[in-house]
C-alpha cells in the first residue's frame, strides 16, 4: 500500500444517502480474480446506458450524461463528497478497489458503513467523517464553484476549504499510522506471532473441540 501524503484534489459530489457497494461496483465484475482494473466499472449502472459486462472496452460504451461523475467539471476528481451510510451492503473489497482505481484518494461524508470503512483504510483510501452541517456546506460550495478543490492532510487531520476554513476530523490512531506509512497489516501482526501461538496453545487445552483435525 502506498503511503498517504497530503494532497489537494478536485471534489465530485454524489448527493445520495445509502449508496451501497452493489452500486459502487455491480456483481458481474466480482468474477475477476484480480485486484486491479475495476475503475472503469465504478458506479457502472449509473455511469453507462448499456449493461456492463466484464472485459468490455468501456471507452466505447454509451455514457449517461446525467450522472454527476460524467460531467466535464468533475473529470479528474480525487475526492468524493457523499452522504449518510456510504458503502452499505456487501463486504466486497472490490468497492474500495474500484474507487481507488478510478482515482479517488479520499471520501468525505457524514457516515460510512462499517465494513466498507474498514476496507477503505486497507487500500489507501481515506474515508473522512464530518458533521452534517459541514457536509451540507461543502455540497453547496461544490455546486456553486466549478473546479472546487479541498486540501487533505491526514497527519494534521484536517480538510482545508478554498476559502481557508479548516475542518478537523477524527481518525483512529492505529489506522492513521498504517495509512501514513503505507504499512501492511499482516507484516505488523506477524511481529506478534509468538503471542498468537501461545494464545492458540492455551485455547487448544481449554476448548479442544474448536480444533478438529483435517480428516
Amino acid at each position: 500500500m502506498r503511503a498517504f501524503t497530503p494532497f489537494d484534489g478536485l471534489v465530485a459530489p454524489l448527493d445520495r444517502a445509502n449508496v451501497d457497494t452493489d452500486a459502487i461496483i455491480p456483481k458481474q465484475f466480482l468474477k475477476s480474480i484480480k485486484r486491479a482494473g475495476f475503475g472503469p466499472n465504478a458506479f457502472d449502472e449509473w455511469r453507462y446506458l448499456d449493461r456492463g459486462e466484464p472485459g468490455q472496452d468501456c471507452s466505447r460504451r454509451p455514457i449517461n450524461a446525467d450522472f454527476v461523475l460524467n460531467q466535464p467539471r468533475y473529470q479528474g476528481a480525487s475526492i468524493l463528497l457523499t452522504r449518510d451510510n456510504f458503502g452499505c451492503g456487501s463486504s466486497r473489497e472490490h468497492a474500495p478497489w474500484a474507487l481507488e482505481d478510478y482515482g479517488f484518494r479520499a471520501l468525505v461524508g457524514t457516515s460510512f458503513a462499517d465494513i466498507f470503512f474498514n476496507n477503505s483504510f486497507k487500500n489507501g483510501l481515506l474515508p473522512i467523517r464530518l458533521p452534517t452541517a459541514a457536509v451540507d456546506e461543502l455540497f453547496a460550495q461544490v455546486a456553486a464553484t466549478s473546479g472546487y478543490r479541498l486540501k487533505i492532510d491526514l497527519a494534521a487531520q484536517t480538510v482545508t476549504r478554498p476559502d481557508g476554513t479548516v475542518l478537523s476530523f477524527d481518525v483512529d490512531p492505529f489506522r492513521k499510522e498504517c495509512l501514513l506509512n503505507g504499512w501492511d497489516d499482516i507484516g505488523l501482526t506477524l511481529r506478534h506471532a509468538d503471542e498468537i501461538r501461545a494464545f492458540e496453545a492455551k485455547r487448544q487445552i481449554e476448548q479442544p473441540w474448536l480444533f478438529s483435525k483435517v480428516a
Binding site: R35, S91, R92, E93, P96, I115, N118, N119, K122, N123, D172, F174, D185, I186, T189, L190, A193, I196, E200
Partner: peptide, 20 residues
Amino acid sequence: HGIGTSEVEHVLATQCLLQK
C-alpha cells in the same frame, strides 16, 4: 464478522483479525 478480502488474507496469514 463479515470481512473484506485484505482481511481474508490477514486471517489466512495470521489467524487473527484486527478489531476495535
